[in-house]
Design a protein around this nucleic acid. Sequence first.
DNA 1: GTCTATAGAAGGATAGAC
DNA 2: GTCTATCCTTCTATAGAC
Lengths: 187, 187
Amino acid sequence: MKPVVVLDKIMETAERLFYEQGYNLTGINQIIEEANISKPSLYNHFKSKNDLLLAYLDQAYSKWFEDLAIFTAGMTTPFDRLIALFDYRISRQIKTDFKGCAFVKISGEVSNDNIDVFERTKKYKNDIKAHVIDLVKQLDRPKDRLLSNDELAETIFSMLEGSLLMAKINKSYQPLEDAKNIVRKLV
Amino acid sequence: MKPVVVLDKIMETAERLFYEQGYNLTGINQIIEEANISKPSLYNHFKSKNDLLLAYLDQAYSKWFEDLAIFTAGMTTPFDRLIALFDYRISRQIKTDFKGCAFVKISGEVSNDNIDVFERTKKYKNDIKAHVIDLVKQLDRPKDRLLSNDELAETIFSMLEGSLLMAKINKSYQPLEDAKNIVRKLV
DNA sequence: GTCTATAGAAGGATAGAC
DNA sequence: GTCTATCCTTCTATAGAC
């Protein structure tokens, strides 16, 4: 998709730079330069850099769930879809050279009283968790398992986040692979 | 401990501001102002802002393990010490109003090719993991448990990180409490 | 709606006096 | 070793022409 509209150019460039370099290390100047637009054009679409950040986060949210739907399109069982969450993240981290979660990155960068960013991060993560809980409910598990459904969901989600973090730090998808195999046993 | 030496003032102020506001949002000007020193004095001790950051990380590393040793001083069994890892983090997060892990925050802020920061973060996290592995080995577990020792250690560590992240995002220690209770069952 | 040009503040870092 | 004073760069944002 070649961007023809200025807004598209801005979003495409901001997405790339915010994620790869970080929000604070990416100046407005660099964005307009690489997007080949002028500064007032940017401020015509966004009233501030923070506004552009929020638009970036909203786009990242939508893309994440859309891409997940595509990734799991052929899968029918809840078990497969649970395991796919790990594979989905592995594939994304390999593509981005293990830069980690965009929302975690940003929420570590901005001020703690930036409520707009805080709420978006919270919603993103808790929607993923809700997805895990939903899938676990659909599983047909024996009654005598070690963990309850709630506990299993909590464990899967927590390991999904923890192993993603370690994948970033170690620049390796091994933590995600290990977590995936453990989850298989816990179900 | 009232800082009498300039170096102490710098470290104390930098530690507070880097952690509370973030590295990039904390300017040299703010540090010298709140530390009540002059700019050349700071550059007499550190050749750059990045150098000060590295000193801050090294101090945070030492303090974390020292404080853990104090926290677990009275504990004798490996099981208690494993559970204490969660309580230790809960107590710290309550104290800091859920600002999360200092190393994770920083590694999300700096450039990915800042090797000095990257290596320190890696060492910090993997030393915690090594500690978990060591404690799990000391456990006297039945042979018929669902998870092997390696798998259990991986799970505990991953949940320790994942639940800490969610504690920060939700500004609640509940994720850490939930993880702790699940770990109790998995051991 | 997009441009050129610039404002005004804050960033990190240094020279030179003491 | 610590200061006052200053340098140059970069930052976000805007005024005004087209």
